[in-house]
Computed example of a mutant assay.
Amino acid sequence: MKHLLITILLLAPFFTYANESQQIDKLAKPILDLFSKNEIEHVASKALEHSSVSDYISKADLIQTDSQFHGYLNVLGKFYSLQLIHQQGIEGTYSTRWYVLKYQRQPALISLEFYKADDEWEVHSINLKLELDDYLEERSKIEIGKLGIKKEN
């Protein structure tokens, strides 16, 4: 009995994390499907439609954001695929996922933020970046800086 209780206590965080991840997956899927279906006209408003955040954003701002997303993505050519490239957060409260969207002309980076204030996870924000090379350049500077100056022998 003692071993069973210890096993249950050790596995509880794993099941909590798995359930949390599944809830976030469920929120992210319809948003990500919009890109796959090339239904990008209302990405921002659809992403936030069931979020309490939308209560604090004017309809005009959402329309403008939808228009910006559509304008930026529409010129990238054919959509091929997407890939989750990074995720991090505060367990049980906040999570961010970064996806690379692979388009014919160039990649785009999208981040989805999820927040759980009380009992339910919701989409907190959606962000689009087209300058993926800027992220790589910044990381390269860090890596080059780590090399330091070589000592002469």
Rank of each mutant, 00 (worst) to 15 (best):
F15L: 08
T7H: 13
A18Q: 05
D66N: 13
K2D: 13
I85F: 06
I63P: 02
N127T: 06
I85V: 12
I24A: 08
K59E: 13
K29L: 08
I63V: 06
V123L: 06
P30A: 05
L147H: 09
K141D: 12
G71H: 01
S45E: 09
L11P: 07
K29Y: 08
S52A: 11
E39F: 10
L76V: 01
I90D: 13
K151R: 14
S54D: 08
V43M: 04
S51G: 05
Y99R: 10
Q68F: 11
L109N: 01
Q83L: 05
V75H: 03
S125P: 07
K2I: 07
L128P: 12
N19K: 07
F114D: 02
K102M: 15
N127V: 02
Q83S: 09
I40E: 02
W121R: 04
L130D: 00
I149M: 15
F114S: 02
P13H: 02
G71A: 02
N19A: 06
T16V: 07
K150I: 12
I24E: 05
D33A: 11
D119S: 04
I6C: 05
S81L: 09
G77N: 04
I63Q: 11
K29D: 10
S45A: 09
E91A: 10
A117V: 11
Y135C: 08
T7M: 14
D33W: 13
S51Q: 09
V123R: 04
G145S: 08
L73S: 02
G71W: 00
I6Q: 12
Y135A: 09
I144Y: 12
E131A: 07
M1G: 13
H86L: 13
